[in-house]
Simulated assay, not measured.
Amino acid sequence: MFEDQQRFILRKISRINYTHTTMIDGYEDAEPVYKRFRDLLGPLSDHLKELLTYEYGGRTYKQVMGTLDLVGERVGSDRFHQDDIYAGLGLVAKQTAERGPSSGATVTGASFSAAFLGISQYKQQMNIALDAQLRVLKGLKDRAAHTDKSRMQVNNLRFDLETLRQSKAAQSAESVAADKKLEQEFTDASTAALTEMTAFIGDDGVEGVLQKIAEAHREFSEKSAQALKSVG
């Protein structure tokens, strides 16, 4: 690892033109996309936490989870069972329906209560799905750290190969053998890094997370809209 860091520094201070060593097809297209997605993991996690906990009145994800965790363990849907703004509205409306003579207002109060208590449950269900994706994002951060090491290896090997090709004076048997060995290592490392970056970007990575967040929110919104149609 120390050697890799030294080569990284050497690459940065060396002004070398890669005239003899090109990247494999697709690598230079995938790398900037991967880096952009990698750099967005933090903001995406932060906003996802806000989406997950907004109904608890502005408390942070950590505060909410600290209250809802049971002995530090995740406990399924019950971990989100706490009065939120939807449940609060539902309970208040329930009281208006239970007090006073029967009227249009009490009927509306009862249906309003049922709708918002239902929405509270739907939000809990969405929270479970969002929390799962939050854990996936945490795993993606670990994957990104590994991929960045793979990318460093690719760049180091490319530097070594290009340096060899620019410095050799003649096509000796020894230099040709060294060139062939380095080229194979470079190709193998590049292929592995490209595979990692492509997976990180796609369905098994950030794109998949976004799709699942959208799916969870769509289901919550559809169920909530259906519940609100019954108010009145």
Rank of each mutant, 00 (worst) to 15 (best):
N17Y: 07
G42A: 12
Y18V: 01
T19D: 14
D25K: 07
K62C: 07
M65T: 03
Y18M: 00
E31Q: 14
E28N: 12
Y61E: 00
Y56H: 06
I16N: 04
D25G: 09
G42Y: 08
A30L: 10
M23D: 14
L52Q: 13
R36Q: 13
L40W: 08
E31F: 07
E50N: 09
E31G: 01
Y27C: 05
I24F: 02
G42N: 11
I16W: 00
K49G: 08
L51F: 05
R36D: 15
R36N: 11
P32Y: 01
D29K: 13
K62Y: 09
E55L: 05
R59C: 08
I24K: 03
H20F: 09
K49M: 02
L40F: 06
E50T: 12
F37S: 05
T21L: 05
I24N: 13
Y54R: 08
R36S: 14
P43Q: 05
N17R: 11
T53Y: 04
Y27P: 04
V33H: 07
L40S: 14
K35V: 05
T22K: 12
H47L: 05
Y27E: 00
E31T: 02
H20E: 15
R38G: 00
T53C: 15
L40T: 13
Y61N: 01
Y18R: 01
H20R: 11
D39C: 06
G26E: 03
T60G: 11
T19R: 09
Y34C: 06
K35D: 08
S45N: 12
D25H: 07
Q63M: 08
L51G: 08
I16H: 07
D25P: 15
E55W: 04
Y18D: 01
K35R: 14
L41H: 09
G42E: 13
L52A: 10
R36Y: 06
Y27R: 07
S45L: 03
